[in-house]
Design a protein around this nucleic acid. Structure first.
Lengths: 253, 253
DNA sequence: CTTTACATTGACGTTACGTAAACGTTTATC
DNA sequence: GATAAACGTTTACGTAACGTCAATGTAAAG
């Protein structure tokens, strides 16, 4: 039995465009082409199309299907295993996306519908997430997982009052730092006040303070472009100025 | 602080091409363009890019992100919920693909590595799957789930010997049918023999036989293009001939 | 002053077709 | 036999979010 494009298309449940495309990429050539240029398919092609659609339904891309069906030496089991890995990776990616969307929704809806307490909890979570997202990789590389986890734990255990204090203190650091910057002297009174405020601010996030870690963080504010961007937002050179002030504050040479 | 494309790109962890593309589609315009045509971004744009990347990491498409960020009336929670639905649907699709790939792998590996017995079991499973894939929807619509499930159960319970008998019988049906077709008489001895063989063949798949169902199936062989293609493979008109023979065999008017 | 690094605007490639244009062929109807 | 409907053909643009040239102008460094 022979078929034209539309006939085979209806038979297999695809469109004629699909068959022309498969012809174009050499995946399924018609048995012959008649004098008017019409594509004519025979039973052999029907079978092959079935095979193609079988793999297609598994989500295998056409190039791979082509290899499976055309080169008899091609290891189809191997190809399917690779394909399975791709699917599993894709599923993991999706799982992560879904988890993140749900966390975000929780936080966002929380702002509208949850009690103040829950609201604040969700907000803290969002803060942690956002922080992780922005700086997580770099910080974890430099300070290790343990330190970061401790910090996150500390944030989670903060009360709403503590959080507000931390936020206000953070803003004050920026204000004083800006004033100090205008004096141009990182050893001056204002700059050292900023460094001290910064130390206090750190107390909300770090479980213990050390001058070395403080100085290290200050250097990172300059080295890491993300941190630098944050401090330089108002005024270029602010990150360096803060670092210098902290170096003096912590007694680093 | 101000940034050129590359600087902002490094800052945010994207390529400059991405920033140009975002400019092109109006998602993130630079603060200004200098006399040489360079794009210059300010702190406001840095913030907006962070927002964009936040949604992008959730898998939201750029067009939706644009709406969320540009029109302040846009309900971002609603958008995220819709997005979550899309993600969940995509995950369901993936689950199905993975399950199918795994079933296929089981069957294919089985052919190589499993014992003859297991081999045969996997093959039967593949047969059922393939049948479901090819005709499942139509058959379920016409005969209902119960009937199809019973049929699948019957196949599963077949022994290897029975399976081979069924296959041989199926081939014999085709052979005799072909011979009968050459006589052109659906009421003739050969055609009636074919119809009888077909009834016997059905015995391997149906849990009980009825003339009505037999006649109905025969009609479906003509109506459904997939079945028709199977019987017409050797000779056009075979499906109709078989139907006529079965109609006579079952005494249908 | 030259090299090097970085900027710009096109424009094509990616996947698996959908969709439409412009035009020839087969089939059904009048 | 003319005509219209239904079907066939090729060509080509559109899709999402950029990657990757190419050709060319500008800024910074030696």
């Amino acid at each position: 039995m022979e078929y034209t494009v539309q006939q085979l298309a209806k038979l297999a449940g695809v469109t004629s465009r699909t068959l022309r495309y498969y012809d174009e990429i050499g995946l399924l050539k018609p048995a012959r082409v008649n004098t008017s240029g019409y594509r004519i398919y025979g039973p052999k092609e029907v079978d092959q199309l079935q095979q193609i659609l079988f793999y297609r339904e598994l989500g295998v891309d056409l190039e791979t299907i082509k290899q499976i069906l055309t080169s008899p030496s091609f290891d189809d089991v191997q190809a399917l295993k690779q394909h399975r890995e791709k699917l599993l990776a894709e599923r993991r990616r999706l799982e992560a996306l879904i988890a993140n969307v749900e966390k975000t929704l929780l936080a966002k809806e929380g702002r509208i519908m949850m009690s103040d307490k829950e609201k604040f909890e969700a907000f803290k979570q969002q803060l942690i997430d956002e922080n992780e997202r922005k700086y997580g990789k770099e910080i974890r590389e430099k300070y290790g997982d343990e330190q970061v986890n401790k910090s996150n734990e500390k944030v989670k255990n903060m009360t709403q009052a503590q959080y507000e204090e931390a936020t206000k203190l953070g803003e004050e650091v920026l204000r004083v730092l800006h004033e100090a910057f205008l004096t141009g002297d990182p050893a001056g009174e204002l700059a050292q006040k900023a460094a001290d405020l910064h130390r206090q601010w750190l107390g909300y996030f770090w479980d213990h303070y050390s001058r070395e870690a403080h100085a290290g963080l200050a250097q990172m504010y300059v080295d890491d472009e993300r941190f630098k961007a944050y401090y330089d937002q108002k005024q270029s050179g602010m990150a360096e100025f803060l670092r210098d002030a902290i170096f003096i504050y912590t007694g680093k040479k």
